[in-house]
């Protein structure tokens, strides 16, 4: 009897998905769907939070007040995006504390891109243009994801992200109009960030363990390779326009497929960075751990104050 019910529930669930009806928090959903979403949304949230670190690194050294105000606003947005996503994750029954603990312990992953250092001011331009550009490509697709709270968070995030990419590209444009040293600095940033940005879309479809199920559930709406190709097609002309060279000797327009052919991605590097051996993994987790630890007394004090106020009101 119970088994029949389960089959019926699963059938009703999949037919909602097939008819593009969003799944909402209290609706019945298969455990595996819930787990997949918790994993994906928390990874996404962690990426926003850790993503503040490489950029925060340059706030005090921004070249002028305008750039500083912009960078501050952008980093604040990333904090907000992390919050929207943690909230979406919590609607699935996972607590924020547990999720944060998993990030600090290294159990949870975040986007590998944030384990690369931001060595020069041009890196801030490259991060905005390429990293946010790649993120937007992914996030626009996720606005149509099947889980309601995740889709709504994505809509908000996409609205806010578009300035992030533009400000990055503007930095690159300005540098490319500058001195020889500035142009070299911009090119050097592209040389270092291009391949890691392509890796942001995740493993090739053939090697992606979660892809097919996620597509059937409409958690993902496009495959990793499709999104990567769209990003390359959109970005190469932007680089050409301002005189930057994409560091890929195999990059070539393919008329037949209406897109660029590109070189082999170093998946061994991706694997190493994801599993903790990138240039900045330890530094990022150390910074997050420090923030968590040093904020603990504030969280405790605020809670104690609220409880004291409540008990006064009650008496």
């Amino acid at each position: 009897m119970k088994e029949i019910n389960l089959t019926a529930l699963e059938h009703a669930f999949q037919s909602k998905i097939d008819n593009d009806i969003k799944i909402e928090p209290k609706d019945w959903m298969p455990d595996a769907y819930r787990k997949t979403l918790i994993r994906q949304i928390s990874q996404h949230a962690h990426s926003e939070i850790i993503g503040m670190l490489p950029e925060g690194n340059w706030i005090t050294r921004a070249p002028n007040l305008r750039r500083k105000a912009v960078l501050l606003a952008k980093v604040q947005d990333e904090a907000g995006h992390g919050q929207y996503l943690y909230s979406a994750m919590e609607t699935l029954g996972e607590t924020r504390d547990k999720s944060m603990a998993d990030l600090i312990s290294g159990k949870a992953k975040y986007s590998s891109i944030f384990n690369y250092p931001t060595l020069s001011w041009a890196d801030i331009g490259a991060v905005g243009w390429l990293v946010d550009g790649a993120a937007i490509m992914n996030q626009v697709a996720l606005c149509r994801t099947s889980y309601g709270p995740y889709a709504r968070a994505m809509v908000r995030i996409c609205k806010e992200e578009s300035f992030h990419q533009r400000q990055g590209f503007e930095i690159m444009c300005t540098l490319m109009k500058g001195s020889k040293e500035q142009r070299e600095m911009a090119q050097d940033a592209v040389n270092r960030f291009w391949w890691p940005a392509l890796m942001m879309f995740g493993p090739s479809d053939a090697d992606s363990t979660h892809s097919q199920q996620s597509l059937d559930w409409k958690v993902k709406r496009h495959t990793n390779d499709e999104l990567r190709q769209s990003f390359i097609n959109a970005t190469v002309p932007q680089a050409e326009l301002i005189g930057l060279t994409i560091p890929d000797k195999d990059l070539k327009w393919n008329e037949a497929k209406g897109g660029y052919d590109f070189g082999q991605i170093d998946w061994e590097e991706f694997k190493q960075v994801i599993s903790g051996n990138g240039p900045c993994n330890a530094e990022r987790i150390a910074a997050r751990t420090k923030a968590d630890k040093e904020g603990e007394w504030v969280r405790e004090a605020a809670m104690a104050y609220a409880e004291k106020k409540n008990s006064k009101k009650a008496s």
Partner: peptide, 11 residues
Amino acid sequence: VGSLHAPDAEM
């Protein structure tokens, strides 16, 4: 519009 954590209503 969404949710958030805070110790009390004012915050």
